[in-house]
Design a binder for these strands. Structure first.
Lengths: 335, 335
DNA sequence: CTGTTAGCGCCTTCAG
DNA sequence: CTGAAGGCGCTAACAG
């Protein structure tokens, strides 16, 4: 397996008739170099098709120009979008990303983080995830760390996330405004802050509207389709009465929708349904799903930029983003 | 931002009272070392919490233990699954992956490949994608290269993919067997081999059944929801008559389904619908979608293993996988 | 089996 | 502004 002959900084130093340090200088552009030499070097680089060896650079300089991203599911759900946008934003910089998948498991996440650290990443972006807070805090002491789609109160300044409480509140309020009085809620993985926040928003909205929080209408899910389906099954089997469902995320809403369909319950004619995240698919479900859109693009970009600033030790600020209500056919006025 | 103090091979050499080369030896385990020294080294490694510097290793050894993956959409569609499984399989090895996203664009793909190569990847896995064949062949001359979810005839031995012709054939045949005689087809991006193959399979199945290929029932899509929706809109607007649709992939089927729904056409009562890929979501659409399942797990694992073998220059073989028909409620006998 | 000695390719003082 | 020289941390011959 032949590999393209390696052109090194020496080769171009020779060709440009300068020393390798001069080459290094023009390449890194920190220090000024005589115009003549500069162009000569650039020319040589061009001619020989020189590409720096990142490993050598890193070894010598101490930083890898790589940032590690730990996500929880390369496939599916909202985090994809987020990661995608982080990558897009990073593309504008000289940093490259390495992605690792924690697969929703603490153990695997830790393992993944270790491989990222072994890769000498200059910084770490944790996308969502369920790593215990202490661990996160500990990590943040050794590496520049940004949390995306998750917040840890003591690391608020390094968290890029959407206000889930407000989102849950608004989703629920939307249903209330439509005249619903018995609104079920399928929570997300209940040990995750965002799931809890959405849940709290739901409760607050009910209270503010003078409605009772009916424990029987609350079912715990785990953010995936199947749990949404099961949740509705459970509600129906128990004979609960409700005219609307606020699902902790879109994926569970899909499952919920199917469960309703199988029971012959129509959406939104019989039951209104609202999700959270606005995944691409949500505009194409039958009927299209009303949901709270997370600004994945802005979140991703913000996370990437925060990371860069952190590394450069330049000041920056983050503030919670807001989810936006996207009304589609799955919700309707209660009759 | 303090970084954990770096423990180097020297430190442990000192602590274990051996030379650094001995340390290197026990760590790499190629050569045998006196048991006493071996344990001493291991102990020191443990005590000091030593972690090798991968960059130094790579610089010295010449290989990065990294394999690059070029995919076409971190989010969405079938490739996710594939990438996910490649990563899982790689986890078993000492290789780590770097993912880059070509975003369906040749230019971005090339750019992405360059950054991967700059990262000194030991091998490249191209997942799907639309890079021109010449370019792929050229690349394969400089780096171990595996094509996943795509095949290039001259690189057949390095391609891991599903037999799309057969899959298209079977999907269509399923509809024919159900009694359908006028079967529409929404193609995928028509400059991609898999889309073409599925299309060819469709035509062949019709011919074998003695049915005519009706050009008017064939609409070009581009693998995403919206194009499926548009395709059906177009067919309906043109007043075409059909009782079934074979969609080039699941995503377009989702869009198609919505278009039918909006026109008040029921699936499968009025029109049967079959997709391709069996994305997770397909089991949860309304109604659940019949589709051809690509064995993402096996494909991913096969790709990863092929890559490893290629790098080690060990013999290996690949053969096309087969898609499996998954029958769900979206298809039914034509009445 | 094991220590010594070169580098790997590049950055970064340190003297000019 | 610029060349020389010393590493960065580790692997890989090369002599023992």
């Amino acid at each position: 397996m032949s590999v393209a002959k390696k052109v090194t900084i020496q080769d171009i130093a020779a060709k440009a008739a300068v020393s390798i340090s001069t080459v290094s200088r023009v390449l890194n552009g920190r220090v000024s170099v005589a115009e003549a030499k500069r162009t000569a070097v650039l020319q040589a680089v061009e001619d020989l098709g020189y590409r720096p060896n990142i490993f050598a650079q890193s070894l010598a300089s101490g930083h890898s120009m790589t940032i590690g991203i730990l996500t929880q599911e390369i496939r599916g759900i909202f985090y994809d979008e987020l990661v995608f946008h982080i990558l897009e934003e990073l593309r504008e910089t000289s940093y490259t990303a390495i992605i690792a998948d924690g697969h929703w498991q603490v153990e695997k996440s830790l393992e993944a983080i270790n491989t990222l650290i072994d890769r000498q990443v200059d910084g770490l972006i944790l996308v969502g995830g369920s790593l215990p807070e202490e661990k996160v805090i500990e990590l943040s002491k050794n590496k520049p760390l940004i949390l995306a789609g998750r917040s840890v109160s003591t690391l608020a300044s390094q968290s890029v996330y959407v206000d889930n409480f407000l989102g849950g509140y608004q989703a629920t309020k939307h249903l209330i405004d439509l005249g619903h009085r018995h609104i079920a809620h399928i929570t997300g993985e209940i040990n995750q802050e965002d799931a809890i926040e959405r849940f709290n928003g739901y409760k607050q909205a009910l209270e503010d509207a003078g409605l009772r929080v009916e424990e029987k209408l609350i079912v715990e899910g785990h953010f995936q389709e199947q749990s949404g389906l099961m949740a509705v099954e459970m509600l129906l089997t128990r004979g609960q009465v409700f005219t609307a469902i606020f699902s902790g995320n879109d994926q569970m809403a899909y499952g919920a929708s199917l469960a309703l369909y199988r029971r012959g319950i129509r959406v939104p004619d019989d039951v209104s349904l609202i999700g959270f995240d606005d995944q691409t698919m949500s505009g194409y479900t039958i009927p299209p799903l009303t949901t709270m859109r997370q600004p994945a693009g802005r979140l991703g970009r913000a996370a990437a930029n925060a990371m860069i600033n952190l590394i450069k030790e330049e000041p920056f600020e983050t503030r919670p983003f807001q989810a936006e209500l996207i009304v589609r056919e799955s919700t309707a006025r209660h009759r």
